[in-house]
Design a protein around this nucleic acid. Sequence first.
DNA 1: CCATCAACTTGACAGTGTAAAGATCATCAT
DNA 2: ATGATGATCTTTACACTGTCAAGTTGATGG
Lengths: 200, 200
Amino acid sequence: MPQESSIDRVSHHHGNLREALIGAGLTLLARDGIAGLSLRKCAALAGVSHAAPAHHFDGVAGLLDAIAARGFTMFADAMEEEAARGPDEPRARLEAICLAYFDFAKAHPDLFDLMFRQVWPLGGKSEELGVAGARAYGVLAAACEPFVPPGTAPGVIETQVWSLIHGYAVLALVGKLGRNRPVAPVGDVLALLRRLDLQA
Amino acid sequence: MPQESSIDRVSHHHGNLREALIGAGLTLLARDGIAGLSLRKCAALAGVSHAAPAHHFDGVAGLLDAIAARGFTMFADAMEEEAARGPDEPRARLEAICLAYFDFAKAHPDLFDLMFRQVWPLGGKSEELGVAGARAYGVLAAACEPFVPPGTAPGVIETQVWSLIHGYAVLALVGKLGRNRPVAPVGDVLALLRRLDLQA
DNA sequence: CCATCAACTTGACAGTGTAAAGATCATCAT
DNA sequence: ATGATGATCTTTACACTGTCAAGTTGATGG
């Protein structure tokens, strides 16, 4: 029998239960929302007993961390793919990434919510979540880099852009602001974003 | 005995239990975070049995709605107070409101999180939450009004400003963006906000 | 072939939200 | 004033959740 690589651990009874549990979590999250996601349901959907996840995650918080980390990976992939689809020009790339940001939030609202809820108390307990989140941020930071004025900290532009698109993403999910006051379309937010060019 | 007004309903055994439960929720939220908030603990803190809240709220979701509504009222009050403290000038007023926005998120992080989590699936089940949220939005909208270009929809500027400050508020709570990449100070975000003047 | 140990199951426990039924008390029509 | 009514709250019970402890299974290594 072929001996597996010593680095990718394969479960004995179940084939890679850890991945199956994360996948089950994503399925439940998409189907029943955050309220329908529980450790026991993930275990049941993966076909194992309710106590099995304890051997792969540090409690329910650990499972949520892993699901959120997977979400950030999907998130970064989606932004990179959308950016690669357009022309290789700084502004087009930045706007493509912003559009991918909104689209992801729209396509996976509960996952999007979970991601930023788990990354909230950034205690660094989960290294996996930290690196996945940092990678997603890195995609945005790279797109901002051409707009950083020489001699200034890149964090300034990054903070401005990230704040704008993240805030808009949650507003777009809510759908409206006040009484019969709809959220403006994406283009109006991108218009504000284009003002960044003036600073360079 | 003085007959109470027929409009403010007074509990028979407990004096206005509904308000007490909301207050208990705010206390638990501030002390133990969102994880330490439960219907039973609110009831215990208010000195009633665990089933008492059912007569005042529609399940735990109803209680959370009421707590979030109270949060939005506190939120609107805080912004108005901060705006009233400064000079009565459009830009100063808008910036004061933004600062109050950040300060509120910093001072009540778990409540802030709960507010926008409850307002998320805006099904309109809670009229109380709807009006409280609309009032908070109205404070910001009024501050944006002087910057609305004539002939354009006010929702555009409102969406831009709200997106920017809300996104920054959640980033300020997280505290950092990527690996050793701190969030830029508030002033840098207000700098972007000042670009709105050019449009008028 | 047996010892070892990780993966998983079973069973139990405290805590949660919710529903049903009963007790208590203010209010109101008679 | 007096009894009926109905809201308020309690008690009890149940399903579900996460977590822990003990036992079972099965693959691996000496």
